[in-house]
Design a protein around this nucleic acid. Structure first.
Lengths: 314, 314
DNA sequence: TTTATCCATGCGATATGCGCAACAGTGGTG
DNA sequence: CACCACTGTTGCGCATATCGCATGGATAAA
């Protein structure tokens, strides 16, 4: 038979306090309880641990060794439970999120900074990629959740609308259209259009917008990276259209953006989690922070807007 | 409330076996017991650990972390108890003994070798010194026991006679007395006597022997170390008398020893332990080995003899 | 549809844990 | 020398925890 945790803890307390009464006061139990627990431990181990003199207790040699071991076991239990409690409260652990590069670079940094200010022991892992890869990360469990656009729904995923991200016209600084406050897709169709690669979710939306506007815009050039597209625009090779959150990625040089209508197009970024799965506590805490930021209407680039509960119900 | 060891162990078993039934068979308890234990653990932690599909169980994220922690705690308990059991059986730990240099060098090495053959994980510590220091080591707890002569008894010490160690005459190889098989103290008194220092227990006995023989032997020279005395004898400066166990310490050179009578004098080496103290298990095991050696009449230098139970009762 | 397998749960028997109260040593005190 | 203050031990009864059995519900396999 093994010694129980309770017996070991009682023994450690008595040995440390050098007395049953003092230990009982410290543990907030009756003295007789400790007397029995230690006595039971001695019986289980088959060894006398304490030399009871009515004045004070002394450890025998076996008692010394037992104290060492008992302390190890009790400490392991105590620290393990503490560690686990912290994890369950979301105070330690890892938040693994998958997201689009624009979200990772523009929206998340402030959120992560705020999050780590509150929960410094939680490490955050960001996996950025295009929509397809991002959703794959969530499905296979690499990521706890994603912040991304969603083309086609899956019954293995759940979505929570997070932010609305309006497309804006992206123009060379000196372009004639830059003089106007507002530009239409039809206007853009008349210019050489610089598009992102076909696998990007942005491309899907620009194609649809042109079609809806009854215009045809054959890309004058394509690039996989939005920053490359930005460079091409800055060089005066043509115009483009990007969601507001992407604009900061274009770099500081010689590019302006304008409101884009006819139709107004926006992409919706959702929080995506696996269906019927409880999130790791730290990840749940991070999503709570996002909700909070949304509720507070924390600043986002012009053209983007939180989707609040009110907005959703509207 | 903390999770109990029982709950943690149950959870580890279920998680590892990936099922309640399999884990129950492994732990030799009923399946319902495990179901309850895990359910209780989930309630205590306030979190779902297992995703129960009727086909198999899967760990949630919290379940993964809990498994890590629970394994640590359970392992700490299991290995700690194992370690403690080994200690209590005398299979690990330290044997600290205090003893006279002659015992340490002549009698103990074979004993320790045999002991470590049986209990390789017990380390042996020998503290050698003269009788007074040796007994002090036992009294203050530095040593678990001593093997030594005992001049004056103390009620704080207990003695067990171990070995009888007869004094023999120590002579230069070419000395006239060396031609005889047997020498008396009176014979020695007629020669220049080379004595050990006054603080040695050997000296106390040689002085007493001369007195009992009605002879007076003024030391021609004194030395603290018996090997030094041996050197002086070898150089022909005089004769001496030493217990048989000491003789090997005199070195190989030009010294012979003869039976010494008139009276026959012996010192008694006792095992000495603190009164009313239980020995550390490993030390007790070592003493058991000494008893065994005594019972088997294991070889000791000529002139020394185990004190067996029979001899003691005689 | 039936069967086999798996986990959850109601239930009663038992073991364990707890505090109270009484008891028994032992130093200090008048 | 008796008494007090303080120690740990132990008998006792209650509350709860723990266990296995038997049963029930759900689902994959036959």
């Amino acid at each position: 038979m093994d010694a129980s945790l309770r017996q070991l803890a009682a023994y450690v307390a008595v040995a440390r306090a050098a007395g049953f009464t003092a230990a009982a006061a410290h543990l907030r139990v009756s003295q007789s309880t400790l007397s029995r627990a230690v006595s039971d431990l001695e019986r289980v181990l088959g060894v006398q641990l304490l030399e009871r003199d009515t004045r004070n207790v002394q450890l025998t040699a076996a008692g010394q060794e037992t104290l060492r071991v008992a302390e190890q076991i009790v400490d392991a239990h105590r620290s393990g439970m503490k560690q686990l409690r912290r994890y369950l409260l979301g105070e330690s652990g890892v938040v693994a999120m998958a997201t689009l590069p624009s979200v990772a670079a523009v929206l998340l940094p402030r959120m992560i900074s705020a999050f780590r200010g509150r929960r410094p022991d939680v490490s955050v892992r960001i996996m950025d990629g295009l929509e397809r890869a991002v959703l794959g990360r969530v499905l296979n469990g690499d990521a706890d959740f994603a912040v991304t656009t969603v083309g086609t729904a899956s019954d293995r995923l759940e979505h929570r609308p997070l932010i609305r991200d309006r497309f804006r016209a992206v123009l060379p600084e000196s372009h004639p259209l830059a003089d106007r406050d507002e530009v239409t897709w039809e206007d853009l169709a008349a210019e050489p259009f610089l598009a992102v690669g076909p696998e990007s979710s942005v491309r899907r939306l620009t194609d649809a917008a042109f079609e809806q506007a009854g215009a045809v815009a054959t890309p004058a050039a394509e690039a996989g990276n939005v920053a490359t597209v930005g460079g091409l625009v800055a060089a005066g090779l043509g115009v483009s259209a990007m969601p507001a959150l992407v604009l900061p990625l274009l770099g500081p040089g010689h590019v302006v953006h304008r409101e884009l209508t006819g139709p107004a197009v926006e992409r919706r970024l959702d929080i995506v989690v696996r269906a019927r799965r409880t999130l790791p506590p730290a990840a749940a805490a991070f999503l709570d922070l996002l909700d909070e930021a949304r509720a507070e209407g924390r600043e986002v680039p012009a053209g983007a807007a939180w989707i609040t509960t009110d907005a959703r119900s509207a």
